[in-house]
Amino acid sequence: MFDRRIDALGTWALVRLGRDPFGLQVFVARAVLALGTFLTLVCNPAAILLHSGDPSATQAVSCVDVGSAGAFCIAGGGDLDTVRLVLAIFCLPTILGIVPAVSGWLHAYAAFSLSSNAIGIEGGDQLTVTLAILLSVASLTDRRLTAFTENRRPGTHVRFVLSNMLLWVCTIQVAYVYVEAALVKLGHPIWAEGTALWYWAQNSGFGVSKDGESLLLDLLAAPVISAAATWGTMILELVIAAFLVFGWRRRRLRLAALVLGLGFHLVIAAVMGLVTFFIAMTGALVISCWRPRDGYPLRLFRRLRRTALSTPGRKPTYEGTRVA
């Protein structure tokens, strides 16, 4: 009886989690996350990334605990701008989709070094590290040389079960980020009373322009608008988390979570100037909306190729194999 249950569980896991997950959606998520790390490293010199807030100190590398394994700590007193550019180069193979099983680890180390050694003010870098490591482990079963190569032998394989489980963990991690963000806000007095965004609009640590700040303050001066925007932010975060968790069999919920999340973070990027945070959350939302059956085929690429190769009145020269 026990053996039958084990066999049934194994069959269920193979059917549900044994499909090759490495399609367009996973590639886009990895590439977007790597792009955020790349832009942060390329656009900010070491003097900006590695600062302590003390005007008398030009650079301050954080080498606490596990952070000492970061590239900036290993370099010691070397040229930290050179280290920064090398780490940026580490991100390129992931952005280009080259050898996913290996390139993901290069990006994960670059993201880890940036998050652990630099002094940041937003959580996009930390989330990128977590997701990059999970994706790197999951991608160990990805045997392709490029992310644009299709699997010519679709089916279920035991080696994909762990990969699919880790990709599920990514979804739970992102949903938890939204839930925690909402609950932490709710526990703070200015968020609970509905005035938090009025204070945030005046925070000089973010990129709100003077004109934008003036307009926001005028709008948020109205108690109804301030309360609606403040409480609406927390409600929206909880809704996105719920859609991610309960969208396992409902593609519309996953699409709604993606659209709401992208719109939400786009507004934050436009108002507060947190562009790289928007990029990181875009990659996080894309991977958290993933499901095993979304992996193959790469319908978009295949449809474009059929369209390009076909002529009026002539059958397309390339016929793709449909996988449900």
Rank of each mutant, 00 (worst) to 15 (best):
R4F: 07
L9F: 14
R16I: 08
D20N: 15
G23H: 07
V28C: 12
N44V: 01
L49R: 09
A60R: 09
D65L: 11
G67L: 06
G67K: 00
A69I: 09
A75G: 05
G76L: 03
L80S: 08
L85W: 14
L85R: 14
V86R: 03
L87W: 10
C91M: 08
I95L: 12
V102S: 02
W105Y: 11
A111W: 04
L114E: 10
N117P: 06
I119V: 14
G124C: 05
L127M: 14
T128A: 15
S139W: 00
L140C: 02
D142M: 00
T146K: 05
F148L: 13
T149A: 14
T149Y: 14
P154R: 13
T156H: 13
V158I: 12
F160W: 10
L162P: 00
S163D: 01
M165Q: 10
M165T: 13
Q173N: 12
A175I: 01
V177Y: 15
V177H: 14
L183V: 15
K185Q: 05
I190V: 14
W191Q: 05
E193D: 13
G194E: 11
S204P: 10
E213K: 11
L215M: 12
P223M: 08
V224A: 13
V224Y: 11
I225N: 09
A228Y: 11
A229G: 04
G232E: 03
M234H: 01
L236P: 00
V239M: 07
V245E: 04
G247A: 11
L253S: 07
F264G: 01
I268Y: 03
A269V: 00
F277K: 04
F277H: 14
T282Y: 00
A284M: 06
W290E: 11
R291C: 09
D294A: 13
Y296Q: 14
P297F: 05
L298N: 15
R299V: 07
R303S: 07
R305Y: 10
T307Y: 11
E319W: 05
